[in-house]
């Protein structure tokens, strides 16, 4: 497989995890592309405007990339922290609408701020890796860390509190769960992950403009999770990988891509109401693996 496509798939999986985190506590946030755009602009601005970040050799320095990812993630996280409390009071579809509005506000800002390059955006972003394979390796490590953290949620009190809120927010509050705080943590974590991913993607794509954080992208990333399932981290990862690859493989369809995602969102829930990866299928998979290799820890309880 083409390494550039593989890299796009891995970035898709990371964005899917960003949508998954709020959904794990029942919060339908479509803000991921907005935070992704913010993270990317941080990386693009630093690496094209600050000599230390651009480096002098053929490739830009790797430590600079790490710093950009940390800063991009932090800025996205801070924005989420600032707006999270009021926005997360909204429920269901109202939260979705508010987060779409946020993505739009960020897009218009990115289009009009004096330093973000207008509609053209920022291009000629330096490359920390000489080949796509370098990106793939680096992104694989990032995805593995993100998946491992999500797996820890299965045993951490935070992770269980999230699921409890998703099942019944009122009952969750009355067993002592600080529901606004838990939802805020999920929202901020989602933003940080999207920001970090954006910083990496800006380098990989070489150019960054306001279109990366658009309403289309909100729908696309949501489709990843609807398709893969939102109960367990493996679902969004598979959804992100598969649905990023699909339109590239069907390149001739062009703009039909959006219709495809719309179709997934419409028809997916009809045929797989809980997405591809459900608790039952995981148990079944665990039993299958367990029989082959003796007793092992179940993936999901």
């Amino acid at each position: 497989m083409d390494a550039a496509l593989l890299e796009q798939m891995l970035l898709g999986a990371l964005l899917a995890l960003s949508v998954y985190l709020p959904l794990r506590c029942g919060q339908l946030s479509l803000a991921t592309p907005g935070f992704y755009a913010v993270g990317g602009y941080v990386a693009a601005l630093l690496s094209t405007g600050v000599p230390a970040f651009a480096g002098t050799g053929a490739t830009s320095p790797l430590p600079a990339l790490l710093v950009e990812m940390a800063l991009g993630g932090s800025l996205a996280g801070l924005i989420a922290l600032a707006i999270g409390r009021p926005v997360l009071r909204l429920r269901g579809i109202y939260l979705a609408i508010a987060t779409i509005a946020l993505v739009e506000i960020l897009r218009v800002l990115n289009l009009n701020l004096p330093f973000t390059g207008g509609a053209m955006g920022i291009f000629g972003i330096p490359q920390p890796f000489a080949h796509p394979e370098g990106y793939v390796l680096f992104t694989l490590v990032l995805l593995a860390v993100a998946c491992w953290l999500c797996q820890r949620l299965e045993v951490l009190r935070l992770g269980r509190a999230m699921l409890a809120i998703r099942d019944d927010e009122l009952a969750a509050a009355s067993v002592g769960i600080d529901t606004p705080r838990t939802k805020l943590i999920a929202f901020v974590a989602s933003a940080v992950l999207a920001g970090v991913t954006g910083a990496l993607a800006a380098h990989f794509l070489n150019a960054w403009n306001a279109r990366v954080g658009s309403f289309d992208a909100s729908i696309t990333t949501l489709a990843f999770v609807v398709f893969g399932g939102s109960r367990f981290w493996l679902g969004p990862v598979l959804g992100g990988l598969a649905l990023t690859a699909l339109p590239e493989l069907l390149r001739p369809v062009g703009d039909l891509r959006l219709i495809l995602f719309g179709g997934v969102i419409l028809l997916g829930p009809l045929f797989f109401p809980q997405g591809l990866v459900t608790a039952e299928r995981l148990r079944w998979l665990g039993a299958l693996l367990g029989r082959g290799r003796g007793r092992r820890k179940p993936l999901a309880p």
């Binding site: 009190r157 269980r160 699921l163 099942d167 769960i177 309880p301």
Partner: peptide, 28 residues
């Protein structure tokens, strides 16, 4: 108003978690 998608054991664990804080260091 149970947490219907969680197991019986997890329903009780959710309650227990919030009565007794885990040592933060090491939880991750």
């Amino acid at each position: 108003r149970l947490f219907e998608s969680l197991s019986v054991r997890e329903n009780v664990l959710v309650g227990l978690h919030h009565a007794a804080r885990a040592p933060m260091v090491g939880a991750l």
